[in-house]
Nucleic acid binder design. Sequence first.
RNA 1: GGGGUUGUAGCCCAAUUGGCAGAGGCACAUGACUUAGGAUCAUGCCAGCGCGGGUUCGAGUCCCGCCAACCCCA
Length: 817
Amino acid sequence: MDEQVYDPQAIQAKWQPRWEELKPFAVVEDDADPRPRRYMLDMFPYPSGDLHMGHAEVFAIGDVVARYWFLKGYNVLHPIGWDSFGLPAENAAIKRNAHPAEWTYGNIDTQAASFQRYAISFDWTRRLHTSDAEYYKWNQWLFTRFFERGLAYRKGGLVNWCPNDQTVLANEQVVAGKCERCGADVIRRELTQWYFKITEYADRLVDDMARLEGGWPDRVLTMQRNWIGRSTGADVEFEIEGRKDPVTVYTTRPDTLYGATFFVVAADAPLAAEIVTEEQRPALEAYRAEVAKLSDIERMSTEKEKTGVFLGVHAINPVNGERIPVWAADYVLADYGHGAIMAVPAHDQRDLDFALKFDLPVKVVVHTGMADPGETGKATPGEGKLVNSGPLDGLSKAEAIEKIVEILAGRGTGKATVNFRLRDWLLSRQRFWGTPIPIIHCGECGEVPVPDKDLPVVLPDLRGEALAPKGVSPLASATDWVNVPCPSCGGPAKRDTDTMDTFVDSSWYFLRYLDPKYDDGPFDVAKAEKWGPIDQYVGGVEHAVLHLLYSRFFTKVLYDMGMITWDEPFLRLLNQGQVINGGKAMSKTLGNGVDLGVQIDNFGVDAVRLTMVFAGPPEDDIDWADVSPAASLKFLARALRVMTDASGAGTDFAAGDLELRKVVHRTIDEVTKLVETHRFNVAVARLMELTSAARKAIDSGPGAADPAVREAAEALAVMLSIVAPYTAEEGWERLGHQPSVARATWPVADPALLVQDSVTAVVQVAGKVRDRLEVSPDISDTDLEALALSSEKVKAHLDGAPRKVIVRAPKLVNIVP
RNA sequence: GGGGUUGUAGCCCAAUUGGCAGAGGCACAUGACUUAGGAUCAUGCCAGCGCGGGUUCGAGUCCCGCCAACCCCA
């Protein structure tokens, strides 16, 4: 019987074109539509070639949620687009002597075709690409608004520089001292760059995370909190001998001020060069050259041997007037706090390491009960009573902090303050394939934004060798493009030649989806009010601090601009795991990659999707060596056979076999709860049980004609469609329904069919099961106890009257002899 | 070094949130149907829950300590 043979490729070929006609997921924007709205968003892909196993997992998981919502009757927005600016396109263009757009849009077309085949429930009419001028025009428009609000500014300073990619990087893009993208060691360079003032939002970014509790994974919230790194402490002013103005340091431990025995300035801070004596200057210069080669991570590592140079001057401890030597060192960072610290070696390990290395005094001011740090080499950062600290003696840490801040404030030499680890977002890049920064530099007028009417500033047509990295932006070589009249005075001026970090593109794309052709602004404000914020966001945990932090920042700025009424973009976040192979991440170099296309050719789209969903909890990694798409295929064949066999069954469900009906409704009830709580793997297991129950009913129960068999098959088709849409659609048709199953209604369990006639009560004696009793589900504790105590099997284990009987009707009795 | 997550059959994973350790799948074994089986169907096998304590009538579940793996931060 041919129709019984399950041929996934044939079913795909049959349904894919039908769906393209039916467009079951196109959103109808109709204000009269009474259905509640839901916005489902997958992190959009970078077009680096065809889709791979990682994409297959995220999008399969996101699609389960989206399709579930469609079937539950929500008006669902589920869009797709491409994060299509970025370095790989540029590198490919250099290699092939081509334009980055060729590689980019070629890959996008490939991925789009794969998505169609993979049957994700996208509304294709909202497709966008961030490398389209009609998209990046609005990056420029937003940049201009940020500039006007003082949130985009240019400053000189030490920046992270990737010598391989020949561009600067944001702090977030430097991982363990290496370029996040290419792995090269990042070095520090002094450059003038554009920044977004994300630090102005640091407090709100921390505080508002309280509202995300429960909706976001805790670990992501923790990672963002750590990244922002809010700490409370104090600014303290120290006089430096020979310098007019005092120098401010930030400390989280102002209570230990009496224990400060030396003073450290970041070697690369301007202050070091300013105050160093002429004798010591050559030593400092040599030292600075060494330090420049190190990353922040290396500099702050507690493992690293401490280095430093005495600057030849002394500072005055403001509370006790002690003269303490001033050193330059690399373990203090120029851009954290004020680039200088008071060193308290007794109670800070790094300060202690430094003191021991250079033979500086160690003075204990907190009595912690631990051995003298000067002897042991172990600092005592814990709490205790203050000692050797004048007016602070005898106080606890909290009391001492309060008191010292009061004393300092009274003298005008210090104050309580909050400090952040978060730095401003360095957004300019010296590369081509990105959004040009819409600023014109004029000798007379300074930085002049390109007027809105002249946007977009379109990229000049550069290709091949012209894009090769050379330390300045390739845009600088496009002379015709660079030289423009100043919009303000009309005099000769030059365009800014840097492009924006591509994280700008992804910081607001979810708003552009609402109407990607919208021409009166970056997005339609009315639609943002209707659809936003995103109800469910799905993507990888690797974006825990980068993309998710930037998007939150943009959302808050847009809120402040009055363009949206919500100030957190993503209400719920699901981080799916990675697909690995043999315990290791799939990679080209390891040669352990698994080709998605080959898997689909062998097992079909549905089997691959099912494998992804069934492998385990969505947030866990999937080891491809542990799963079996062949087994998934087998199940789908069984399911389709059940749906086929049920096609002749009766339609009067109420007349169906009661036992099977109960299974059906219990399954509906459980699967619904499991999908709601994202336990998709368990939901699939329940569908497998339902399939087996229906199979048994057909073969050795009431038979294929029983209406309960149809009820089971139809519930199966609808519920299975969120994971395996092709198989479900084919089954739905064989059951005599019009396509598409995507427009069906999620089944509802009948409460009357969920109640059980009897349950098994377990009777334990001293915790050991001695008997099982079939009892009514609403038996009383007293009745159940009596029943249990009269059991012969129980009596056999009892010697006289029990000491205690615990009854949990209707499930359990435990008798303590 | 600090913080977090996880640890249940040979393997991937469940367990109504304190109540019979097993739902589903893989692998394996046996049988049925078969020219055949790497198809299909049926049946079966396998752990006492990472280790050690504690609370409790009762602990995979709660508490403490330890070990291991992974992830963040240093």
